[in-house]
Design a protein around this nucleic acid. Sequence first.
DNA 1: GCATGATCATGC
DNA 2: GCATGATCATGC
Length: 454
Amino acid sequence: MQQYATKKDILERAQELIGIPFKNIDTKGILASGKGAIGNLIQECWFGIPVNSDPRPDFVEADVELKAHPFRYNRNGQVVAKERLVCDIINYMEEYNKTFETSAFYLKCHDMLLLPYEDKINISKEYFSIAKAVLFSFPEEDLAIIRDDWGKIISKIKSGIAEQISEGDTLYLGACTKGANSSSLRKQPFSYVLAKQRAYCLKTSYMTYILQNYIFGNIKNEKIVSDVSMLKDKTFEEYVVEKIDKYKNYSIDELCDCFKIDKKKPIKNKESLLAFNILGLKSNKAEEFIKAGINVKTIRLNANNTITESMSFRTFKFKEIANQTWEDSDLQNYFSETRFLFIVYKQDGNGILRLKGCQFWNMPYNDLEIEMKKVWEITKKVILEGASFRKVDNKNTSDLPKLRDNKVGHVRPHARNSNDVDELPNGKMFPKQCFWLNNYYILSQLNSTFKDKE
DNA sequence: GCATGATCATGC
DNA sequence: GCATGATCATGC
């Protein structure tokens, strides 16, 4: 029998922990032992539960899992999760045989004692302390999405492609890599290919939402699915696709008329705003998209089924790339975690853009870990060498990867103008750059239904 | 026609 | 003032 046997006992004891520096409770020297130590510290030294590998929640009688989790304040002063919340390792050999209710994730994490602590930059973690103590169980509408996420992960195991699982496949519940390094491999049941070891996790974007809305505040955003019964016979993504599909072939002006938007008023990214309107939202913010960290991108197809422009992303800092490895690079993290919603418009014979529909997408595992990795590594090499950055005929040029060098991506300027510069490791200044997805690569990723001849 | 470098426009 | 999403302009 555990000492803290009810939720009430647990929460009361947890409340007493708030504000106490971790070094003051560390009677066993756990902090010195390394990663994951804070959860272990609280479990052992504060609640007296020995660390174990029991598949059941830490508080067995109360059926509650203890989770300490770091947060930070962003530039705007908002609380944001520092990282995803990692749960159990996914045992590919066993997990596919289970139901969601008996999965290792749900069995352990259906109810959690969340203990967020601020992770302060340049301060030793022994001075950190728990900021809040909250008992958390998933809202019904989140559970509907998490259940589908789980199904997606399992279906890749059942298809014998566990090695192609990516965190970007899913919305709230992810499968993140876990292990000493990327060579930690495991067997899978329907293929001889070894797959990277992965663990169930709640995505960083989801944890940020929990922190901002359930723990520290109560910001309300518009929901796409206002009632969970709307997802009775379809997934969230299917619901979105079907809804947008109802306005197939509407021109931008026609859509503006439908939603009473001033056609002449300059609005940034009107095409995506119209898609949000179709989904029943007034703003271009949806609770589900924020939780899932979904990135909405508009794609314009020409009448002859080509795409003119490549797709840009945020600018990078030369020195950041120079100091990172691929595994901890912003680019790898971004494309492995991020799910996209493409809103697809296509020019008709008269050059008028018409809505064709939408498509959820994330970068396939091999495109990221083989192709994009090459682009990143060449970029790093060119930045470190530094010699190729030069001016020819008054134009800045360099040996950074170009459009035809790689089928997935390239590097190009992304700045206000050529005077908007960033410092290279050798001290030279050069226009800010970003990674781009090649226009022809994007085209290759689009559903064939968008490319049909009219 | 397309690749590449440069720049625009909104919105916070 | 700047990030972001997007598009323009030149020259081969």
